[in-house]
Amino acid sequence: MLEIAVGIILGCCALGAGAAMIAGIGPGIGEGNAVAKACEAIGRQPECKGSVTSTMLMGCAIAETTGLYALVIAILLIFVAPNLFVNILLKTIGK
């Protein structure tokens, strides 16, 4: 019985980590839009290339933040959470 419980905990942690990384779609679309607009701007005004590029990199890094929150949660779910949950389970059973 205990094996099944631990297995469910491990599997759900892995599923949760995978589901959390769906958040990667958002920053991908957003950054793609930002880079497309930056390319258009450079095409229209090639002399502004430097400032457009640095502003675009800045905006991309900020748009990436939500994806990185998801990454942090996925990493916590894979490397930290299983240990924690199994310990809680063992404590409640009383072993």
């Binding site: 890094a61 900020i62 990436e64 933040t65 990185l68 929150y69 990454l71 942090v72 990493i75």
Partner: peptide
């Protein structure tokens, strides 16, 4: 929090 997570997440994701 977001400043710390941004910097740390980018470097860590690279190594992972």
């Amino acid at each position: 929090i977001s400043m710390a997570f941004r910097h740390y997440g980018n470097i860590l994701s690279g190594s992972v």
